[in-house]
């Protein structure tokens, strides 16, 4: 005689049964301290320029491929394709990172910023880059902007030497290098001025 299956939902971790999905979710969260359901392989949750994404990534996807080809953040560019040029730089949790050398699957829970986000937040770097012609063909430019933003976040008042040091990993075949410190110093001044305006005396 066939045994009727127990109605309800069983916990994937300990097999306890529940009558409703909500009960199961409460149990998993409380007892196992994790998401209600096991994540499919390759599932990542990340934030790009303040937007939350939940997606499944293949294990061989680089962060560059995810951002550029899947999500359409074209600010990350491939120049060298192997960690030598900095044109694919994005900021992950405050640090500049080469997205061509980072696997997307490692970015679960990360907060990512790209040039598009820096521009959308009206960071003075963009204006300074345009004004001081810190670009020619522009292919490497977003990578420089991202590296510069990460620098200003950790060092709001850098010297020319510190800027050069920070940009030493960004290649520009058009040779726009001397124009970057000028733009970055101007942007830094604007960020500092805005900060002091917002700080109560």
């Amino acid at each position: 005689m066939a045994v009727a299956a127990k109605p309800g939902y069983s916990c994937p971790y300990c097999a306890t049964s529940f009558n409703t999905v909500d009960d199961l979710k409460d149990h998993v969260l409380k007892v196992h301290g994790t998401e209600a359901l096991p994540r499919p392989e390759g599932y990542v949750k990340l934030t790009v320029n303040g937007q939350a994404w939940e997606l499944e990534v293949a294990p061989n996807w680089t962060l560059f491929y995810l951002l550029h080809d899947q999500l359409g953040y074209t600010g990350a560019k491939t120049f060298c394709d192997r960690g030598a040029c900095g044109s694919c730089t994005v900021i992950i949790d405050g640090r500049p990172v080469l997205s061509c050398m980072t696997l997307a699957i490692e970015c679960d829970g990360k907060n990512i910023e790209t040039a598009e986000g820096i521009a959308a937040a009206k960071h003075p770097l963009i204006e300074a880059y345009v004004k001081h012609h810190a670009m020619q063909c522009g292919y490497c430019t977003p990578g420089f902007v991202v590296t510069a933003k990460a620098l200003l976040d950790r060092n709001p008042d850098p010297t020319v030497e510190e800027i050069k040091e920070a940009l030493a990993g960004n290649l520009c075949r058009c040779g726009t290098y001397p124009q970057h410190p000028i733009a970055i110093i101007e942007a830094a001044k604007k960020v500092l001025a805005a900060r002091s305006e917002n700080t109560p005396a």
Binding site: T74, A119, H133, M135, G138, V145
Partner: peptide, 23 residues
Amino acid sequence: RGIWRIDGREKASGSAIYTADIK
């Protein structure tokens, strides 16, 4: 001097599209 490049904002903000970007 100080004339704004007409391509400047697009290039600095990553929205300038190159053939390599097209899908």
